[in-house]
Design a protein around this nucleic acid. Structure first.
Length: 807
RNA sequence: GGGCUUGUGAUCUAGCGGCUAUGAUUCCUCCCUUACACGGAGGCUAUCGCCGGUUCGAUUCCGGCCAAGCCCACCA
C-alpha cells in the first residue's frame, strides 16, 4: 500500500482508534514473564465542563511513558480510572438539579450522583482518552465509587483500626460551614484579605480597664481567658486577676503565654473556643473551659443570647454596634490578614467540636520522611516539598465527612457504652444506614441501642488507596504481589501534600512498604503570558477547540515539548511546529518507501556498507542510547528533541540528500542495496522511537510497508532497537561529518553567489592532511561538482580542511 | 517570615568550569535541487539578572543582593 501524497489525519485516526481497541494492542498480559511496569494513574474528576489543555497535557505526558516502556519490553499495567467520589460530584448534582442534599432521601441522592457520574465518564473516556490515542487497558477500568474501591477503602479503615492507627475522638475540627463537613488540614487553603482589627475595652474585677485587640468581636461570648506575654511589664499586675467580658459579663482569668506578641495590638489577646488555631492550642495547654457558640451551619447559637441565628458576619456587625453603644470600641484599624478557607468553595473555615474519625499521622512523621527517600522523585526537588509538609503537620488526619455521596464509614456505635462495632470483612462494602446491624446487641454491655454511622470518608481515604485499587489488592492477591509497589505515580505538584502524602502514609501503615518506586511530577500549563489558566481570567485554551484545528498527533507533539515538573507556557506556534514535523515525517517516509518498494532486508545477505552508511548507523546507535537515558529519568522532552534533530537534520537534510544519487542511478546493485539496507533500518528505527509521541501517523506508515516484513500487527507492539556496539564506527562517522562540512560550505557558496543548488560547479580543490578521496564521489553527486582534486586551497572551513571553489 | 524553582539574543530555550555560547520563532537574502515551498541554503540580533569570591580560566561552582513564580507557616 502506498502512502497518499497528503496525510489524512482524520481518516487515519479513526481507523487506528478502532483497530487498537479491537486487537487489544495495549492489554496487560497476566501470563507474561516480561518485567512489569505498573502505573498508578490519577483518576480524573469526570465531572462537568470541558477539559482544558492542561488536563490533556497532564494525561498524555505519562501516556507517552506507558508507550515507551512497552517498546522497551515491559508488560505495562495501565488501568484507566475515574474519581466520582466526594464533594465535587455532590455539589454538581445539587446545582444541576437545584436541590440540597437534605431535600431527598440519601439513597435517591446517591443514585442521582452515580447516574450523573456514569454519563460523564463515558463521554469523557471517548472524548478525551480515546480521542487523544491513549493506550489504556480498558478492561482494568475502576472508579472510586464502585464496589471494589469501596471495599478497599473500608478494608483499609478496618485494618488501620485493628492496628490502632484509626481512632474516634471528640475534638475541635476544621469545619467548612458551606459544605457542613469536617475537613483535613490538607483541604484548607490560605487566602489574604483585608479585615478590621477592633480595639475593645474590657473591665477587670478590680475596676480597672484594659484594651484588647480582636478581629472577631462576634466571639466575645466564647471568650474563656485573656492572655498577655509573661515579660510584658505593662500588664504584670493584671496576671492572675479576672477580666469581665463586655456585653456578656462572664469573668475570665488573665493568664500568660510566651506565644503572645507584645507588639501586636495592645499586647493583650482574648482566647475563644474557637476562633483560630492558637485558641485550640491554648485551650488544650491551659485546660480552659469549652464554650461553643457556633453551629454546623456556621451560625451563632443560643450561647450568644440575642445574637442566636445570625451568621458570623451579621453577628459581628451587631456586636460591634452594641459595643459602640456602650463606648467599648476604642479604635478600629484595617488589617491585612490570612485566613484558612475551604479549598473547594473558598468559605472561611471555622473550628467546631464534633466527634470525628482520625488516622494517626503525627506519630509517623519521621518514618514517612524515610519512606519518601526510598522513592525516586522526578524532579528530585519535589521531595523537599513533601518533607516540609510532613515535618510541619500538626493535625492527625481527619477522615470523616458529613456528606452523603462517598464511601460510608463502616461502623456502628452502642449508644449506651460507646462501643464501636465493625462489620465482618467478608460483608464489605457496607452502608451502615442500609445494612442490618452486625450485632443485635452490644457485645460489651448488651445494650440494644445501636446506632449506624452516618458519615462518609474523606475522598482521599479512597484516593490514597489508588495503587491498591488499581492493582486489585483484595480481588487478585496473587497478581497484586507482582504489581505492588507500583512502578510509577505521575501526578501534579499541587497535590503532593494530599494524594502523594496519604498514599505513602497508607502503604506504610498497611504494608510497611512504599507505594511506588518512582513519582514523576507533571507539567503545569500556563497561558502565553505565564499566568495560570482559569475560567474567571478568560484565558483558558480548551482541548476540544484545539483538536478542531490540529490533529491529535500535533497536539501530542506539543505535549512532548513539556518538561516534567516544570511549567509550560501555551504558544500556538508550538503546534505549528508539530504540524510541520508531521509533514516532514510523512514526506521523508514517502520518499524512502518509494525506493524501498519490494525491498526485504531479511531476504538478502547483509551488504558491504559504504562509509556514509556506517556513519549514520553510528549516529543512530548513539541516538538510541542517549534517548533511552533521557527517557529513563523522565526527560522525555529531551529524548523527543534528540530524535527529532536526528531525523530532520541528520537523516533528512544530509543522509537522504547524500544517498539520493545512489538509489536513483546506482552504479551497481550492491551500492543501492547498502543504501536501502540502512534506509530501512534507520527509518523504521526513527518511526519506532517517535511512535510514543505521535502514535497515529507512525502506525499508518508502519502498516503501509514494514508490517508485512516485521510481522507484528502494530508498530506499538515492536521494540526499539538495542544499542549495538558493533555498529559504532567513529572513523566513518567523522569522515561523514567532513563530507557534511564540505557540502555545507559549497551550499553556502552557491547561496551567497545566488546560484541554484543544482547548478554545477566545475572544480573543487580540497586541502587536508587526511585522505578524503573516499568521499569525493559522494560530495560530487550530492552537491553537483564536476571535479574534485587535492591541492592548495585558501578557505579554511575546519581545523584540517581548506577549500577552493573554481567556477 | 521560611522553603523551593527560575532569571541566557525581540520572544522561547539548551548548556551548568575552558576553543568564535546551543537550537527554535521572528526579521532579511537567495534557491520551486526528480519526498516535502507545511521545503531547502544562508544571514542579522546576547555586556549569559546584579555585586563580590574561589580558580590559570565562570554563563556554568560558592556567598550576598534584586526580580518573578510556586509551596508552606503566621499573630489574636
Amino acid at each position: 500500500m502506498e502512502l497518499e501524497k497528503i496525510y489524512d489525519a482524520e481518516k487515519v485516526e479513526n481507523k487506528y482508534r478502532q483497530f487498537w481497541k479491537k486487537e487489544k494492542i495495549y492489554d496487560f498480559d497476566f501470563k507474561s514473564k516480561k518485567p512489569v511496569f505498573s502505573i498508578d494513574v490519577p483518576p480524573p474528576y469526570a465531572s462537568a465542563g470541558h477539559l482544558h489543555v492542561g488536563h490533556a497535557l497532564h494525561y498524555t505526558q505519562f501516556e507517552i511513558i506507558a508507550r515507551y516502556k512497552r517498546m522497551q519490553g515491559f508488560n505495562v499495567y495501565f488501568a484507566p480510572c475515574f474519581d466520582n467520589n466526594g464533594l465535587p460530584t455532590e455539589k454538581y448534582v445539587e446545582e444541576k438539579n437545584k436541590i440540597s442534599k437534605g431535600d431527598i432521601p440519601r439513597d435517591k441522592f446517591r443514585k442521582l450522583c452515580r447516574e450523573e457520574s456514569a454519563k460523564v465518564e463515558k463521554e469523557y473516556g471517548e472524548r478525551v482518552f480515546d480521542t487523544l490515542g491513549h493506550s489504556y487497558n480498558w478492561g482494568l477500568l475502576y472508579t472510586t465509587i464502585d464496589k471494589e474501591a469501596q471495599r478497599v477503602s473500608q478494608m483499609s479503615f478496618i485494618d488501620l483500626y485493628k492496628k490502632g492507627y484509626a481512632y474516634r475522638a471528640e475534638e475541635p475540627t476544621l469545619w467548612c460551614p458551606y459544605h457542613q463537613t469536617a475537613l483535613a488540614q490538607a483541604e484548607v487553603e490560605d487566602i489574604s484579605r483585608t479585615t478590621t482589627l477592633y480595639y475593645l475595652n474590657f473591665d477587670t474585677e478590680q475596676g480597672k480597664k484594659i484594651d484588647i485587640a480582636t478581629t472577631r468581636p462576634e466571639f466575645l461570648a466564647a471568650c474563656v481567658a485573656v492572655f498577655v506575654h509573661p515579660d510584658d511589664k505593662r500588664y504584670k499586675n493584671l496576671v492572675g486577676k479576672n477580666a469581665i467580658v463586655p456585653l456578656f459579663g462572664q469573668k475570665v482569668p488573665i493568664k500568660t503565654d510566651k506565644k503572645v506578641d507584645k507588639d501586636f495590638g495592645t499586647g493583650i489577646v482574648m482566647v475563644c473556643t474557637f476562633g483560630d488555631n492558637t485558641d485550640i492550642e491554648w485551650w488544650k495547654e491551659h485546660n480552659l473551659p469549652l464554650k461553643v457558640i457556633i453551629d454546623k451551619e456556621g451560625k451563632l447559637n443560643e450561647e450568644t443570647g440575642k445574637y442566636k441565628g445570625l451568621s458570623l458576619l451579621q453577628g459581628r456587625e451587631r456586636t460591634v454596634e452594641d459595643l459602640r453603644r456602650e463606648a467599648r470600641v476604642i479604635k478600629e484599624e484595617s488589617l491585612q490578614q490570612q485566613v484558612g478557607v475551604c479549598w473547594r468553595c473558598g468559605t472561611p473555615i471555622e473550628f467546631i467540636v464534633t466527634k470525628q474519625w482520625f488516622i494517626k499521622t503525627l506519630d509517623f512523621k519521621k518514618d514517612l520522611i524515610k519512606q519518601g527517600r526510598k522513592i525516586n522523585w522526578y524532579p528530585d526537588f519535589y521531595r523537599k516539598r513533601y518533607e516540609d509538609w510532613t515535618k510541619n503537620l500538626n493535625w492527625d488526619w481527619c477522615i470523616s465527612r458529613q456528606r452523603y455521596y462517598g464511601v460510608p464509614i463502616p461502623a456502628w456505635y452502642c449508644e449506651d457504652c460507646g462501643n464501636i462495632i465493625l462489620p465482618k470483612e467478608n460483608d464489605l462494602p457496607v452502608d451502615p444506614l442500609n445494612t442490618k446491624i452486625p450485632a443485635e446487641k452490644c457485645p460489651k454491655c448488651n445494650s440494644k441501642k445501636i446506632k449506624a454511622e452516618e458519615d462518609v470518608f474523606d475522598t482521599w481515604m479512597t484516593s490514597s488507596m489508588s495503587p491498591e485499587i488499581a492493582a486489585r489488592w483484595l480481588e487478585k492477591p496473587d497478581s497484586f504481589k507482582e504489581l505492588f509497589p507500583m512502578s510509577l505515580r505521575p501526578q501534579s505538584h499541587d497535590i503532593i501534600r494530599t494524594w502523594a502524602f496519604y498514599t505513602i502514609l497508607k502503604a506504610y501503615l498497611h504494608f510497611k512498604d512504599i507505594p511506588w518506586e518512582n513519582i514523576a511530577i507533571g507539567t503545569f500549563v500556563l497561558d502565553s503570558k505565564g499566568r495560570g489558566m482559569s475560567k474567571s481570567k478568560g484565558n483558558v485554551v480548551w482541548t476540544d477547540e484545539l483538536l478542531k484545528k490540529y490533529n491529535v498527533d500535533v497536539v501530542r507533539y506539543w505535549v512532548a515539548t513539556a518538561s516534567w515538573g516544570e511549567d509550560l507556557r501555551f504558544n500556538e506556534q508550538d503546534l505549528e511546529k508539530g504540524r510541520r514535523f508531521l509533514t516532514k515525517l510523512w514526506n521523508a517516509s514517502r520518499f524512502t518507501l518509494m525506493h524501498l518498494k519490494g525491498f526485504n532486508p531479511g531476504k538478502i545477505k547483509k551488504p558491504e556498507l559504504k562509509t556514509i552508511d556506517k556513519g549514520i548507523l553510528t549516529k543512530y546507535n548513539k541516538l538510541l542510547k542517549e534517548s533511552k537515558q533521557h527517557f529513563d529519568v523522565y526527560k522525555s522532552q529531551e529524548a523527543k528533541k534528540s530524535i527529532e534533530y536526528f531525523f530532520w537534520h541528520v537523516f533528512c537534510d544530509n543522509y537522504l540528500e547524500m544517498v539520493k544519487k545512489r538509489v536513483y542511478e546506482p552504479k551497481d546493485k550492491k551500492e543501492k542495496e547498502s543504501a536501502l539496507y540502512v534506509l530501512y533500518k534507520v527509518l523504521l528505527g526513527i518511526l519506532k522511537m517517535i511512535a510514543p509521541f505521535v502514535p497515529f501517523i507512525t502506525e499508518e506508515i508502519y502498516q503501509s510497508y514494514f508490517k508485512d516484513i516485521e510481522g507484528k500487527k502494530s508498530i506499538h507492539l515492536n521494540l526499539w532497537d538495542e544499542y549495538d556496539k558493533k555498529e559504532i564506527d567513529d572513523k566513518a562517522e567523522k569522515l561523514g561529518d567532513k563530507a557534511v562540512d564540505i557540502i555545507s560550505y559549497v551550499r553556502k557558496y552557491k547561496s551567497e553567489n545566488n546560484m541554484s543548488l543544482k547548478q554545477p560547479i566545475p572544480k573543487l580543490i580540497i586541502e587536508s592532511k587526511d585522505d578524503l578521496s573516499g568521499i569525493y564521489g559522494l560530495i560530487k553527486s550530492t552537491i553537483n561538482i564536476e571535479e574534485i582534486e587535492k591541492g592548495k586551497a585558501d578557505k579554511k572551513i575546519t581545523d584540517d580542511i581548506k577549500l577552493k571553489v573554481i567556477d
